[in-house]
């Protein structure tokens, strides 16, 4: 059987999800600019921006997460059969949604056994942690605890495949 030479090489190379995901990320790197625009873009500009947050925020968010959230969502954000994961499907569920909605949800509904008990800055830092864990790089500008400014940002999908050219919105091209 003919073996595609590149394939055999890749098969050996891909050891572990992180390596492979990096490769996938590289593959779609050119698409990042396009992704800044949400799929369900509102008719009126300005276009929402990708959020910025600092590594310190994410680190602090990791501490909050470990103490308050991990008991349900898992130490590695993996969720369980009856518990939503905060990676993978979480990205698909929240991508391109403005961050004030995520902030409002966490503020009002989480942690489940004591909703609304975390101070605003802790909630913001948890969001910074979730952004980092799902592939968004930290920057120099902190994520603001300001709902109006959060409304101008969307949850990114940094690993999404580039949009299909000349395709109808929301419909994959079919060759049949």
């Amino acid at each position: 059987m003919a073996q595609h030479p590149i394939f055999a090489k890749q098969a050996q190379k891909a050891r572990g999800f992180c390596t492979a995901l990096l490769a996938a990320t590289g593959l779609v790197a050119t698409a990042h600019a396009a992704l800044a625009a949400p799929r369900h873009a509102p008719a009126a500009p300005p276009a929402p921006a990708a959020p910025s947050f600092t590594a310190e925020q994410a680190d602090h968010g990791a501490q909050i997460y470990a103490g308050t959230c991990a008991m349900c969502h898992g130490a590695a954000l993996e969720g369980a059969h009856d518990m939503p994961p905060l990676r993978g499907l979480f990205v698909a569920r929240w991508a391109n949604t403005s961050l004030n909605k995520l902030y409002a949800y966490i503020t009002h509904a989480m942690p489940l056994m004591a909703p609304g008990t975390l101070p605003p800055q802790d909630n913001i830092d948890v969001i910074a942690f979730l952004l980092r864990e799902n592939g968004t790089e930290p920057g120099h500008t902190p994520l603001p605890a300001d709902e109006n400014r959060l409304a101008q940002m969307v949850f990114p999908a940094p690993n999404a495949l580039p949009p299909v050219k000349a395709a109808q919105p929301g419909k994959a091209p079919r060759t049949r």
């Binding site: 999800f17 995901l21 996938a24 993996e78 994961p85 990676r87 993978g88 499907l89 979480f90 990205v91 698909a92 991508a95 799902n134 592939g135 999908a157 940094p158 690993n159 999404a160 495949l161 929301g170 994959a172």
Partner: peptide, 12 residues
């Protein structure tokens, strides 16, 4: 597997 695929945001 689906968790790994989900961030790729593909419908089909």
């Amino acid at each position: 597997a689906v968790e790994r695929a989900a961030p790729l945001m593909e419908k089909h």
